[in-house]
Every structure is written in C-alpha cells, then in structure tokens.
Design a protein around this nucleic acid. Structure first.
Lengths: 325, 325
DNA sequence: ATGAAAGCGCTAACAT
DNA sequence: ATGTTAGCGCTTTCAT
C-alpha cells in the first residue's frame, strides 16, 4: 500500500507538496503537479482516510437510527437519507434499534468517540442525562428529542384534515382507529388527535385503540386487526397506518366483508404497498424523500456551524385516492 | 474533549499505563487501575476511535451494498446484516446502488482508502480490472463476483423443485414465469432454469418473460403484470418473485379473475408481504436472517485470515403454503 | 513554490 | 509495574 512518502519520493518532491497538490490547497507549479500525478498513477496511490480523519477530527460518517428496516417506511427513509448524504460526500452508518436495548446510547457513545460526525434519528430519545453530553449535531425525524434538536416532520395537521374529510364525505358513523402507542409526546400524534377532534365535531364516534408499536411483525399486525374487528364488529370504517390497513383488508376479505361497500379502510403513510392490493388503498402520503433530504440538509447546516436552524420543519402530505373508501 | 494525556495527568501516571489499563493489555497494578478509572470517570474520557483506527489500520466498518432498500428483500437483508455485524463489534455502512452509476467502484475505492474493512455485496460486480486491485475481503450474497469471492446463496435447486411440485400437483398446463433479467451468470438463475426443466419433463408449457430487474417501482410491477396478462390470457398459473406475484394478485382481482380457481399464483422469496394479502401467497421462503448471518460470519473469518473459506454456502429454503395455488 | 517538521490521539515496544 | 518514546499517514504551519 503506497503512502504519501513513496509518492513524494517517486516524484522527487516533499510530502507537503504532494499533499498540497492532491488537496488543491496552496501553490504547486504546473510541472511538479504533473510529476505528482504521474507518481500517483504509477503507484496507484489512495490517500488513507484514517489518517485524514485523525487530523481533521471527523469521520465523514453520519449515523442513521431507525427502529426497524423491515418496516417499509423506514427502509425508504434510509434509502433516501443515504442517497442525500452521498451527495454531500458523507456516508451512512445504519442502525436498527429493534430488539436491542441501549442501542441509541451506544450510538451516542460512538459519536463521542468520533466514529460519526452526527446522527439522524427516527427513534425515541435516551435519558436527558445521556443527551446532555452530546456535542455533535442530531436531527430528528418525527421524534421529539428535546430543545435544540431540530425536528423534520410532515404536515400532520393537514393529514388529519384529509383523513377526516374522507371519512365525513363517506358518511361514516363509527370509526375504529389503530395507532402506535407512544410514551412521550411526538409530533406525529397530532394527526390522530386532530382527526378525532374533527370527527367528534361532526358527530362521528371514534373507537381509539393503541397498538404496540415496536412489535413490527406481520403476524402481530394480523392478530391486532383480528382482535379489534372481533371486539368492534359494528364499525363502518377503520383508520390505521398503511401496513395495518393492508392487513385489515386481508382480514376482512377472508371474512367476506367487502371493501369499501361494507367497511371503509383508510391508511396513512402512502407506502407503495398500498398500490399492490386491490382495491388500492386510500391513504395520506408522506413525502419520505423530501423528509430525508430535509434531515440531511439540516444536519449539514449544523455541521457547517449554522446557528439559525429552525426547530421544526414541516413537509407536505398528499391524499392518495384509492378505492377503499 | 479530554484526551489520554489529561487522563494520565489527572491519575498521575504515564499515557502508556492508561492505554494498558483501558485495553486490559499488559500489567497494571490494582491501585493505579483504580486511579485511572476514577480519572476516566471524572474527565468523562472516551478514547478517540479515529486515532485507534489509524494505528490499527482498520475502521471497524463493513460496507453493505444492495440495489435498493425499498425492495423488502434487501431491507430485511440489511437489517439482519447490520444486527449480525453489531454482534461482532462491527458497524454497517449502507449503500444503495440504484439510479447511481459507479457506486460499486466508488465503494471499492473507499475500501482502498481504509474507510471500510470489507464489503458484503448483493449487486452485480464491477469490471475485472477494478476487482483485481481489491485487497480486502468481499462476500457476496447470491451474486457471482468471480473466483475467490465466497457466495452465500439459498438452495435454488430445492426451491425450483418445490415450485415445480406445486404446479404439477395443481394440474397446471401452461404457466407464465416472470423473472429478472441478468447480464451475467448468478446462482439464483438455477431456480428458474431448474423449474422449467422439471415442468418441461412433465409436459407443462412455460412462457418465460424477463423483466427489467433494477426498475423496482411498483408502477412498473403493475404495468409488467398487466402487459403479460394481456399477452398471454390463457395461462393457468403465474410464477414470479413475491412482489410481482402480489402485484399480479391485485391485477387479476381487478379483472374479476379468481385466485386460485381461475388462476394459480406462486411466489418466491417468502416476504411478509405475502401474508398481508388474501388469500395469502404460496411462496418459497428464503431464510434471509440466516443468509445475513452467513455473510457476516464468513467475512469475519476472512478478516481473521482464515484461508479455508468455502467458495459457496447454501442456505435452506422452505415452502410456505398459502392459498394461491 | 517547496521542503522540513510539528502535530492529530492513540498503541506498543523498550527501557527501567 | 510503569514511564518514555517512536510511530500510524496525513495536513499544515513555518521557514526558505
């Protein structure tokens, strides 16, 4: 593995000059530049990032934490986050927290050890105490990590309105909502809350069920749907995240209930999954690529030392008209 | 940011002693160890991995390359790969190649720059020439990267047999197969080939369609299915990957064709997606967690300098009986 | 415009 | 058992 010294020796110059030539910093005469480029090519020299990292005290890596990559929402988020980071010359370290406790805490440790230059998080925060010692930038996707940590969220209020409108227009009277349980306040709660408020005002009764959110297996989804449909067989509509909504479609189909004639189903997230079923799922689409871009742009600004970063940035949502309502 | 010198100064010892105490290498008296631990706690010392990396000439990072994380197969693979790497104390750098050319080549460059200690790949290889200069371990998931690069694959032959058995038992006469186009030979081709061979022997005619594989959008899936179902409306069964199979279910449902009465559908991969539709998809399940573990175990062996690594390791597959055949 | 030299923060060999 | 020191491979002053 050729190092910068070999290159310098081959080109007959000093290591400083090679460094300057390669980084295009400082003056290097055209002639020596040529010689250095030649040496680089001949020796197939690749600068050792490890040494650069040490000198610059940065790794060029951003950690991205999600609960579960098997959830298509987070998989898509990870994909676009990685792509955006790549555009900035950064790399994405992926981390699944599901089924492993303390994962977040460890990642924060790794950040202190300079393994990562920053963190993009889509999971619940660790304790205040741990959070306090964080020195590097963190940006949160739809989770409340406390003061000073910017949140990228989608327009949950508008989402609530879109869903509520659909339900009202369809003339539903009694609706079952299945939502993830949360232990601290998060931005995305606004949509469930907002929706229920509107529905209540319109005289629609709402049965609100909370489901265990970090059990993301499909068996569990089916089980949840079966259970609540047994419990409340008189509802005329179900609202849930896309995954649960699609599971619901399968369950009711098995039971001979027709969608949307006997039961309306409306999702949330706008995952492609909803297009793969028949009828296609009516849902509210979150702009995941936009959210990913926003997270990355924001963390880059923080890394640049920008101190005027908004505490909260809201991405637009859109109604996807399917055939389930 | 406290460094090892501050810790040494605070504890009243030399830096070497601190290093030995922290790494549990060499002798350190109980007394000094106590003092050092105290200093570490007081100063909240975290060793700088960047310096360690430089000294050890390794980063503790493995790159994982997949075509597209939006494809649930690769999302699941990434999840389990990350989890397994974590168990070994390694970290996963994620990389999507889709829509970006030269991504693989760049990753290989990064490997030469010591950003990663190795690569787990689920994509097509770059040119021979580029591959030649690779010095660090690569392990491939179901892709043929050439001599010396171990492949982890699943039992495609058994998969072919399982599918063929189902089709024969169901009494099908004419089957449409939708498979990803490949430009070089890969292990997974065995299943399509093997299956067709068995079906031919049994007098079942096979219409074999190749679909563009790296266009992974759901619109494209639907379009493909619509197109081939228009072209060949007399087939009595369709075989395709789970995603296409589920898309197929939606398309035929829209057309009023009943599954499995009028048309049998059989998938491949065993994604959870297949359980979310009704009737649940009959499919052959690949053991993704196992494959991920196998990839990680193998690359760890290579990193340890093990020279007796098998060129090919095969993971078992299993028939998932659904209701589509 | 370029070379020499001093770190970046750590580990390990060497000396005591 | 512990302190001192020489690197790891690079970047960047500081002279010249």
């Amino acid at each position: 593995m050729a190092g910068i010294r070999e290159v310098a020796a081959y080109a007959g110059v000093g290591v400083g000059t090679v460094s300057r030539a390669l980084n295009k910093t400082g003056y290097v005469s055209e002639e020596t530049r040529k010689k250095i480029e030649e040496a680089v090519k001949v020796l197939n020299y690749q600068p050792n990032e490890l040494a650069r990292n040490l000198y610059r005290n940065k790794s060029g890596v951003i950690g991205v934490i999600v609960p579960d990559l098997e959830n298509p929402f987070f998989a898509k988020f990870m994909k676009y986050t990685e792509m955006e980071l790549f555009r900035y010359g950064y790399r994405a370290l992926v981390c699944n927290t599901i089924e492993i406790s303390n994962r977040v805490e460890e990642l924060i440790d790794l950040m202190e050890k300079n393994v990562m230059d920053g963190l993009i998080v889509g999971v619940d925060p660790p304790s205040e105490k741990i959070l306090k010692r964080v020195k590097k930038p963190i940006v949160s996707m739809d989770r409340n990590w406390g003061k000073g940590i910017p949140i990228i969220t989608s327009d949950n209020k508008k989402g609530a309105q879109l869903i509520a409108d659909q339900i009202i227009q369809a003339g539903c009277k009694k609706i079952l909502t299945l939502e993830g349980k949360t232990y601290i306040h998060h931005p995305f709660e606004e949509r469930g809350l907002g929706m229920k408020q509107i529905l209540n005002k319109n005289g629609i009764s709402v049965i609100s069920a909370e489901v265990e959110w970090n059990v993301l297996s499909y068996e569990y989804y089916m089980w949840i749907v079966e259970k609540y449909l047994d419990l409340f067989d008189d509802v005329d509509a179900v609202y849930a995240g896309d995954l649960l909504a699609v599971a619901c479609m399968a369950v009711v189909k098995k039971r001979g209930i027709r969608v949307p004639e006997d039961l309306k189903i409306i999702g949330y997230d706008g995952l492609d999954l909803g297009k793969l079923v028949s009828p296609p799922l009516t849902t509210v689409k979150q702009d995941i690529p936009k959210m990913a871009k926003c997270c990355v742009d924001t963390i880059m600004r923080l890394l640049d030392g920008d101190t005027h970063v908004e505490e909260k940035q809201v991405c637009d949502v859109e109604l996807i008209k399917g055939g389930t309502i």
